[in-house]
């Protein structure tokens, strides 16, 4: 079946709607003027050069990378045994546990942020890097869990039986068969978790301190004060970074698989 002309017009409008704000931010970033404007005569890199004078943005970018990497790694490490148990063992409370692990998806990040702020201030660890990472582990855990669980459920239980029948003990079966087979799931779980962590603002606003601010939070607080070509330049770099990451993931794994699962159509 083909799309009619009306459908294609609608589609074009939809795509423009999706891309316009991001394209606009990138255009404004190249303005030669000192105020917000779309460059008409020439492109200038002056605002990108200005970023160098704001070490906060660079520090925040480093913090973001570190937090996202650490939180995603920890989340995947916790997710692997839990996903294997839920996918392959029958025990009471299995379904409930799965729902429990997915719960952070349902809880607004605002509520999580407030809860961690209160929790950390009582424990006396507010504003620490450790606190920030733990918060991010919670937020990204469901994503890591979902991907590892999909890999573990998709695995034929008989493959393990085959290894057992051929004389492999439990540990060998895990080392040689189970773990290698869920590594793609672990990798995609890490990727999805990393993206979620890197973009998280709402919860982080509550628990980040001046020294542990992530890039999106630093951008958010900057925008609350003023909107100028500088912040557009920072955003443009972030968009560029995201597009590059997206192309890499798409090349090696397929974004469609990451977000929709196996395409059955």
């Amino acid at each position: 079946m083909r799309n009619g002309p009306l459908a294609l017009v609608f589609h074009a409008a939809f795509v423009v709607f999706l891309l316009a704000p991001m394209v606009l931010v990138c255009l404004v970033a190249f303005t030669p003027e000192g105020f917000l404007s779309i460059p008409t005569t020439r492109f200038s890199l002056r605002w990108f050069e200005r970023i160098a004078q704001y070490p906060d943005f660079i520090a925040a970018f480093r913090t973001s990378l570190f937090v996202a990497t650490a939180a995603s790694l920890i989340a995947v490490l916790f997710a692997v045994p839990a996903a294997l148990a839920i996918a392959r063992y029958r025990f009471t409370g299995r379904e409930a546990l799965n729902a429990f692990f997915m719960a952070p998806l349902m809880i607004p990040h605002l509520v999580l942020g407030i809860a961690f702020l209160r929790f950390y201030s009582l424990l006396g660890i507010s504003g620490t890097m450790a606190g920030l990472i733990i918060g991010h582990v919670v937020v990204v855990f469901p994503f890591a869990m979902r991907m590892v669980l999909a890999a573990a459920t998709g695995m034929d239980k008989r493959i393990e039986d085959a290894a057992t029948a051929l004389g492999a003990d439990r540990i060998t079966t895990y080392r040689r068969i189970v773990i290698p087979l869920i590594i793609p799931g672990m990798a995609s779980g890490f990727a999805l978790a990393f993206i979620q962590s890197f973009d998280e603002v709402t919860m982080t606003v509550f628990i980040a301190s001046a020294t542990t601010t992530t890039l999106p939070v630093r951008m958010f607080t900057y925008i609350q004060d003023s909107i100028d070509p500088l912040i557009c330049a920072v955003s443009a770099l972030l968009i560029l970074f995201t597009v590059l990451a997206m192309l890499v993931i798409d090349r090696f794994y397929g974004l469609q698989r990451l977000f929709i699962g196996e395409d059955k159509s």
């Binding site: 493959i159 039986d161 290894a163 057992t164 029948a165 492999a168 003990d169």
Partner: peptide, 29 residues
């Protein structure tokens, strides 16, 4: 235990190890 019984099993789904070559599959046991 199943791994000590020394039985050869061919499963309906074959249950081949997808991440190993054919030779590695056969060599595993």
């Amino acid at each position: 235990a199943p791994e000590k019984r020394g039985l050869g099993i061919v499963f309906q789904s074959y249950a081949l190890f997808p991440h190993m070559t054919v030779a590695a599959n056969v060599a595993f046991g």
